[in-house]
Nucleic acid binder design. Structure first.
Lengths: 229, 229
DNA sequence: CGAAAAGCGAGAGCACTGCTCTCATTTTCT
DNA sequence: AGAAAATGAGAGCAGTGCTCTCGCTTTTCG
């Protein structure tokens, strides 16, 4: 086996990622500098390329890791709700987990949901991790559907194909209305968090947490309502 | 008066902004390069600094201009609705104007609502233009309130102060519930557009326009409803 | 009108970036 | 033990934002 080198390699790789995350937290994702990481590491800049073939590959690794952490946070929040049939509590838990993670890791939120880095196209490796944080939400919709049909809402015909595909992905039989309600709630949560973290509530809302609560409760009513929405 | 120089200066300034916007559309806002602009202009890079003291100042000018165009688009859409009492039509018009503008100017949307450029803090000059696109929305809420009270919804106590301040800014007497409903709709619209433009609907929704329609209609029901929501 | 002042563009240069290539050293594999 | 692979150092290239100095031109003012 290749003991010494393999361990050293793993340690250095982890250290690079740690420093990258540290730097990102300090100066933002776009300011991430390979040379600065190398300096912190006591290495020359070209040595970094033994571990990551390019800055984009480093970013990809960071993105995958961040998606994973966010996903884990949301999963844990949902799993923490004992009464699995209490859909309001589960929705609240999942939504607030998203915001909490974002507030605690703003630079990572920017990395995942901000402006895509110019010239950087998210590679396929990121697709799967990216779906993890939504899995808790779709799982909620599936469980709700199993507990009884809701959300009889007319949806645009042009959306039917997408919803049908989504239904298959979900693995359940959630009606179109339920999917639309879920997607809308998703958009509202993501919008509220991004508005807050990207500074668009400055001079408008001093208590973004309270506003987020209101948004969550608003959509809780729609998600749980058997008819309206 | 200073005829020749003044005109030349205005022309060059406009040309710089034009090239900047062109470059932004091609490679994204973060890739905007002063030197590239200078090259396109047939000037040496240092000459640009006679017109903009720094890259950040150029960005600020672009941001202000973009906010202004977005605001104008939303205003025009709202003003285009003849029957001023048809709040559903006005909401639809304003919301779709936001998405249309975003889809037509994705790089500018990123500039306004994406990750803040690292080290760049939006100066006060941008605050006023930033409120313009929301004015149509708040105007709608004010007009609705004048037409009759709605949205009797319990709001978190911690949000009351913000809502009170917002009510003053609005210049009307919109109840807390109306403001919360409006803020939620705003978050949903912004979230839906950003999810679409930043690539988070890939492999999920093929018809983002149809999803946006659904989101808008969903919130139309809440905004117009006299009780639910 | 003519001199002083201000505006403007060119050019050189600094410190920084991502990335490539070569070379010596060290570890691993056969 | 010898070949092969991994690793880090160093130099170098092309690009970036930005500063400074030096002429030239336009504007302003006595």
């Amino acid at each position: 086996m290749s003991g010494v080198r393999e361990r050293a390699r793993a340690a250095t790789t982890a250290e690079i990622l740690r420093l990258a995350r540290e730097q990102m937290a300090a100066d933002g994702a776009a300011a991430l500098s390979l040379r600065a990481i190398a300096r912190d590491l006591g290495m020359v800049s070209s040595a970094i390329y033994r571990y990551f073939p390019s800055r984009d590959e480093l970013l990809t690794a960071l993105i995958i890791d961040s998606y994973d952490r966010l996903g884990a946070a949301v999963e844990a929040a949902d799993a923490g709700v004992r009464r699995r049939g209490d859909f309001r509590a589960r929705w609240r838990a999942a939504a607030h987990a998203i915001r909490s993670w974002a507030v605690e890791h703003p630079s990572e939120w920017s990395l995942l949901f901000g402006t895509p880095v110019p010239g950087y196209a998210a590679p396929v490796d990121t697709i799967l991790p990216a779906t993890r944080y939504t899995a808790a939400l779709t799982g909620l919709l599936a469980d709700m559907t199993a507990a009884g049909p809701r959300h009889r809402v007319a949806v645009p015909a042009s959306l039917r194909a997408d919803l049908a595909r989504l239904r298959v992905t979900l693995g359940g039989d959630a009606p179109d209305g339920t999917l639309v309600v879920g997607l809308t709630a998703w958009a509202a949560v993501m919008g509220a968090v991004s508005l807050e973290l990207f500074g668009h509530l400055h001079n408008v809302i001093d208590q973004p947490g309270a506003l987020f609560d209101a948004v969550v409760e608003q959509h809780a009513r729609i998600i749980l309502g058997t008819d309206p929405g």
